[in-house]
Nucleic acid binder design. Sequence first.
RNA 1: GGUGCCAUAGCUCAGCAGGUAGAGCAACGGACUGAAAAUCCGUGUGUCCUUGGUUCGAUUCCGAGUGGCACCA
Length: 319
Amino acid sequence: MIPVLKIPSKGMMSQLKNKYLIIILGPTASGKTDAAIQIAGIFRTKIISADSRQLYKELKIGTAVPDQRQLKSIQHYFIQTISIHDYYNVSMYEQEVLELLNKLFSEKDIVVMVGGSGMYVDVVCHGIDDLPVVDPLIRETLQQRFNDEGIESLRLELKRLDPVYYSKADLRNPKRILKALEIYYMTGIPYSSFLTGPKKERPFKIIKTGINPDRDELYERINQRVNGMIQSGLIEEAKSLYNIKECNALNTVGYKEIFDYLDGKVTLEQAISLIKRNTRRYARRQLTWFRKDKAIAWFRPGEIKNMVDYIKEQTGNFE
RNA sequence: GGUGCCAUAGCUCAGCAGGUAGAGCAACGGACUGAAAAUCCGUGUGUCCUUGGUUCGAUUCCGAGUGGCACCA
């Protein structure tokens, strides 16, 4: 059972007019963590992570969470807070972040948010429609049917049950079809009728900054990060998670390739190359997501001073 | 020094009995309202080493040059 969290009341929210959420986003390995810590230090505030994998307690090396020293210097939220066995989704994240922000803004004028999960960032900025919680049994049944029957019969079913969503859905993407059917079977109401579209307004102001190295530099940073992860014990970490490798949260770059190595499917050398390649691809997908957001002010790694100047300019120069 | 083989996409290579070229990997672009580091869709990016010749036409055939590899000295 998922606890329903209360959205702050209107009275509390009206006081947040001069509060600023500073978002630092960018592709993986672009230097977000360091930048966020420096900037949060300058503004004497705290950091909210918007990272769908650093959330998990059990994951550390492969997700490049901030180290102990960094976590001590600035308080972080949403780092290693839930278990990979827990069910979690962006809507829960939205609720929890709004709750937390309401609390943090009572003592700070500025809060920093850092992360590379575009959907997590967007949900905090614009919200997401409310959907019913789906019974895990329904989800499993549909998943089983997909495994047995393939996508075509589910697609035809969606066409019959929710023609509106069918007409605009990505019909070759099983996840989209399954999601819509889950909601239909949970409620008897078409998924499309839950999608209202309009974006929620937030009572606080949002300033978006991004860090985007040149492509060559980004790939070099990725290579170094991956080599560093191997040296720091990624293989041992993956071994300790091997018996639960089917968990959704472990369908993650860095872990899945090491599992294949442990299964003897690839050599260690191949696994490391694949981690690098898959991280590059992930970074590109992140950039595709961020590119369409024209509100982001872009910087290069190390341009902390420029970022701080930009933030001061946007907030009216107060600290 | 001699002989032979090779030179085509970022890489490994295929191909064209002469009509300006394609495969794997890599790369690049896009979608994305509850597992999003997930999932799905799309794209060939090229002085066919250089230079003469033959030809209506040469990446393809011939000569020379350059570079690489192998073997013989």
